[in-house]
Design a protein around this nucleic acid. Structure first.
Length: 716
DNA sequence: GCATGGCCTG
């Protein structure tokens, strides 16, 4: 305060003096250290600087008001005021003032354009840039660097090219590496990698930023191999990589799952002394997890002294996507305990972990956290929540999340359609699909896949055919093998095997999946003859396809051709093919229990098997007869029955019922393969016997068992 | 120029 007083004793005009005091009072914690301030201009400047440091918008407004009153405004200080507003984040205040200023310095133009660009208000950035020339102000390297971003943000290739032309005319394209980098970045973001490359080649003095822009561009357009080459070129030219370029090239390695180059880069990072640089270490972590090396990922994570939000999130994403859902949940809880807030990235990933294990209770807890952070209307977390509820069999909850979303987006809609599909609600899926047009949204390839699968799961043959036909007329959608596979399945399961086969023949290069789908339809309709023909096609394309061997041996088993079953099994043995073992998970009291067929590894196995025997007796009373067609071994009758009784889903249900005796809660199980016909029938009867609802999610869809019926209407 | 994310048939 003393310094202010000192300044104020040397006034130039009494009026100003008084008002400075007023301003000073409003900011009585602001002090003036520069006692040599003698005129208003310097004093204003000093005030503005301090307001900027404090991010005090009201302070700047007061200064502006005072300047106007004292006749100081609208002159040289205007640019400084604009700068102060921009630094405090109020672009609109800055613009109001900007429009009033009679003389606007190129620097002020640049600040305005750069701010609009940064805040993705790209249209405003471009319109200012285009307005400059009218006032006889010509863009410089700063103007161009920021306006390129605006063009790429809006996808305006033509405008971007025009601005590029201006850079060429001004000679800045080759001589200024900032302009060059911004240009490379623009073309990369516009997907014009050839142009980006040409620009880079022309820049005289290249640097690491310029190269990184090109590397990122190639990586983001799926040309990781080229990105690696460019990185190599950069090093060859003696340009050293820094933290950011390491971060970028590691993403490339991760996408390519190129662990050998990844490790090479890891070594380079250590050599170059960037071992504690956050961005490159986070990329390193992600690279290892994308390559499936979770242990290495964890090792990198442990080296962080203070992992931040992004680091924690990267770890959790890696765990969730590598089938380590439980560990992901543990880490998530640790993150929260360490007072690191999750963001929409974290929450959507952890929700993904919950939905892939159908952990409804855990998922609901995460939903509460999502709401706490105000992200329940966010499209990413929203889609993840819809997916969770859909995969847990609660389409009502999924729908309520969906209805709460702020804006319509194709992904949440696809997720919702797919939720209906999984739960056999074909008509609901179709209704939403039809509504998309009214909402002005273009369905994409995933939308069609989801809606076709909805028709498939609900047995809506006519509707499916109609949609498929409409896709063929829609030139915006590329018909993929996946869409064909869905149709083949739909036709095949409806028994229209000939048509399904004809459809496959229309595909230019039918792959194994298509033929195997038809083969599976042959199995359902016990079409041994066609199956053998199709089998040959499958083995031509994939001689060692384990799925096909299993499928065929199932077909032979269900038609009682045990000789062929044995032949298949021995073929599988010879080729060392192993059936994926069937597993069932069940969540009881927030703990996940895993079961395999005939499994005695559970500590409460004795109780489980007792419960199971009890259940079997009960359902036998309701007419249960073991369906021996689902036994894939040629055992004697008694053993066949036994092998059916101990299927993993039966064990899991017995356990869950034992643990929740006298309760009425719904039992939820998750199976990695598709539920077998015998178990399906058994569970229906159990739902009557114990008067409980049972929800089973198998590899393909949901089964909602209640009062002896299943939501799939025995069609799966 | 740089680190993390949502939906997908069989």
């Amino acid at each position: 305060m003393r310094t202010i007083q000192a300044t104020l004793q040397r006034p130039t005009q009494p009026y100003r003096l008084k008002s400075f005091a007023c301003i000073a009072q409003d900011f009585n914690d602001i002090s003036f250290h520069n006692s040599s301030l003698t005129d208003g201009s310097q004093l204003y400047t000093s005030f503005l600087r301090q307001c900027t440091e404090r991010k005090s918008l009201s302070g700047i407004r007061r200064v502006q008001l005072h300047m106007i009153k004292s006749g100081f405004g609208h002159l040289s200080l205007g640019n400084k005021l604009i700068d102060a507003y921009l630094k405090c984040g109020s672009i609109d205040d800055a613009r109001d003032l900007f429009d009033e200023l009679p003389h606007r310095h190129i620097v002020t133009w640049n600040s305005m354009i750069a701010s609009y660009s940064k805040q993705k208000r790209s249209k405003e950035a471009i319109s200012l840039y285009e307005g400059m020339a009218w006032e006889g102000v010509f863009p410089d390297e700063f103007t161009l660097s920021s306006v390129f971003k605006a063009f790429s943000d809006l996808g305006l290739v033509r405008g971007g090219r025009r601005a590029h032309g201006q850079a060429v005319v001004l000679g800045l394209e080759v001589s200024n590496v900032f302009v060059g980098s911004a240009l490379v970045d623009m073309y990369a973001k516009l997907g014009r990698m050839r142009d980006a490359r040409l620009v880079l080649d022309r820049v005289l003095e290249k640097d690491v930023v310029l190269f990184t822009a090109l590397i990122v561009g190639y990586t983001q357009h799926g040309e990781g191999v080229v990105a690696l080459e460019v990185f190599g070129d950069m090093l060859k030219q003696g340009i050293k990589a820094n933290e950011y370029s390491f971060a970028s090239i590691l993403i490339t390695c991760g996408n390519l799952e190129d662990i050998s180059n990844g490790k090479l880069i890891h070594g380079l990072i250590i050599k170059s002394g960037f071992e504690s640089a956050v961005a490159s270490q986070t990329s390193l972590l992600t690279m290892y997890s994308k390559c499936g090396l979770i242990a290495d990922s964890l090792k990198v994570f442990k080296r962080f002294v203070n992992p931040n939000q992004v680091t924690w999130t990267s770890l959790i994403v890696g765990l969730a996507q590598n089938g380590r859902e439980e560990v992901a949940l543990t880490k998530f809880r640790q993150m929260i305990r360490n007072s690191i807030n999750p963001n929409s990235f974290t929450l959507s990933s952890i929700l993904q972990a919950c939905s892939s294990l159908a952990m409804l209770d855990q998922g609901k807890q995460i939903h509460a956290i999502v709401m706490k952070f105000g992200l329940d209307r966010n499209k990413f977390t929203g889609a993840a929540l819809i997916d969770l509820y859909g995969k847990c069999g609660s389409t009502e909850m999924a729908r309520s999340v969906f209805d709460g979303l702020l804006a319509f987006d194709v992904v949440p809609i696809n997720t919702m359609i797919y939720s209906y599909s999984q739960n056999g609600l074909g008509h609901e899926a179709l209704e939403l699909f039809n509504r998309m047009k009214d909402l002005g949204l273009e369905p994409n390839d995933v939308t069609f896949l989801s809606v076709l699968s909805a028709c498939n799961n609900a047995g809506l043959l006519e509707e499916g055919c109609r949609i498929f036909a409409s896709m063929r007329n829609n030139c915006n959608i590329e018909l993929t093998r996946d869409h064909y596979a869905c149709m083949v399945d739909l036709l095949g399961r409806a028994g229209r095997l000939k048509e399904a086969e004809m459809l496959i023949n229309q595909v230019s290069n039918p792959d194994v999946v298509l033929w195997r789908t038809l083969l599976s339809a042959c199995r359902i309709h016990r079409e041994v003859e066609m199956a053998e023909r199709v089998m040959n096609r499958v083995f031509e394309l994939a001689p060692a396809d384990d799925g096909t061997h299993v499928l065929l041996s199932n077909l032979y088993a269900s038609t009682g051709n045990w000789d062929q079953v044995i032949e298949m099994k021995s073929m599988m043995r010879e080729m060392r093919l192993k059936k994926n073992p069937a597993m069932t998970w069940v969540d009881v009291d927030r703990e996940t229990h895993t079961f395999m067929a005939g499994d005695w590894s559970h500590p409460r196995s004795k109780e489980i098997y007792e419960m199971l025997e009890e259940l079997i007796e009960k359902v036998k009373g309701l007419g249960y007869v073991p369906d021996l067609r689902f036994v894939l071994q040629d055992l004697d009758e008694e053993k066949k029955q036994r092998s059916l009784y101990y299927h993993s889903e039966k064990l899991a249900i017995a356990f869950a019922l034992w643990r929740s005796k006298n309760k009425t809660t719904t039992i939820r199980i998750l199976k990695n393969l598709r539920v077998c016909g015998d178990c399906h029938n058994w569970i229906k009867l159990v739902s009557i016997a114990v008067r409980r609802e049972i929800i089973a999610r198998d590899a393909k869809r949901f089964h909602y068992f209640k009062d002896g019926l299943c939501s799939c209407k025995d069609y799966w």
